[in-house]
């Protein structure tokens, strides 16, 4: 697969956002806000950075992706469907009985999911285990983990971070989706994180602070990281906007886990189409 340009990735992320909105609208259930804040990074990973084969989801040498903030799986499902892991029509079954697209990612049901997640704080430790296995087996795959800023209030994240440092996991890249909102309100009010990037740095990670919606910055950072084999795990501390791309959802805590109605759905799709046209 030819690598996408920044512009193509920008377009792809908007297309994925449309799919996310449609899935959640159809299901009348799901988490749009965090899906949209993570969208650009997830796009860069699936459509440019990761070494994966949609026709062989269990390929041993593939890069792994752990969506530790599992509730934003609509953005992952949209990516997997677009890449051909399963039929795009399946996206219409999100959260429906019998669907492979569970409310939170299920590795046994959905091809392309490397680990089941959904209970916050647990994905990073799983990613650490995968990265250790890669080192032990002398494989060159890498493990990408996405955590939310609210999620980092869980202690297990920091237990896992210690382990990543101890085992010199430079094959582990953690994205922090720093959208500063969580279910009950502004993250800095619910439980101030101070500066998560600096916390990861203090735990022995190389830290890169970026604008998580600037595709060029995302891909440049991933390029730099690919070249850095220094025995240190990586943290991409990405400042993002919850609900990014849909005006009425942006920075609105209320859109954490609520589905749009018909009017809101139509407006969201129109806004995203306008952004695609403006590219």
């Amino acid at each position: 697969m030819k690598k996408m340009s920044v512009k193509e990735l920008e377009k792809q992320s908007l297309e994925l956002r449309k799919k996310v909105i449609r899935m959640i609208y159809k299901a009348q259930s799901g988490h749009p806000g965090g899906s949209l804040s993570a969208a650009d990074m997830v796009t860069a990973l699936y459509f440019r950075e990761m070494k994966i084969d949609p026709s062989n989801p269990h390929w041993e040498d593939r890069d792994r992706f752990v969506l530790s903030k599992g509730h934003v799986c609509p953005i992952q499902y949209a990516s997997l469907a677009t890449l051909g892991y399963f039929d795009e029509g399946v996206l219409e079954t999100l959260r429906q009985e019998g669907s492979m697209l569970q409310g939170h990612p299920d590795m046994k049901k959905c091809p392309g999911i490397d680990i089941s997640t959904g209970s916050l704080g647990q994905g990073l430790a799983c990613g650490v285990g995968m990265a250790i296995a890669g080192k032990k087996d002398r494989k060159d795959y890498r493990v990408f983990v996405m955590v939310g800023d609210g999620e980092c209030q869980e202690g297990e994240i920091w237990e896992a971070a210690q382990t990543a440092h101890k085992y010199e996991l430079d094959n582990l890249i953690v994205f922090v989706d720093n959208n500063n909102l969580q279910l009950d309100g502004i993250t800095d009010e619910v439980m101030p994180n101070i500066h998560l990037g600096k916390k990861f740095e203090a735990f022995g990670f190389d830290m890169y602070e970026i604008d998580g919606h600037n595709m060029k910055e995302i891909t440049d950072t991933l390029d730099r990281i690919r070249m850095t084999k220094d025995g240190k795990p990586k943290c991409i501390f990405a400042n993002t906007i919850k609900g990014k791309g849909v005006s009425y959802m942006e920075n609105e805590c209320g859109w954490h886990g609520v589905a749009p109605n018909e009017e809101q759905y139509t407006q969201a799709i129109r806004e995203l189409d306008e952004q695609i046209a403006a590219l």
């Binding site: 680990i115 650490v128 285990g129 296995a133």
Partner: peptide
């Protein structure tokens, strides 16, 4: 807690 997660990650890799 981390040990359980690390073990799960290892298990996904055989």
């Amino acid at each position: 807690q981390n040990a359980a997660g690390v073990a799960a990650g290892l298990a996904t890799c055989g």
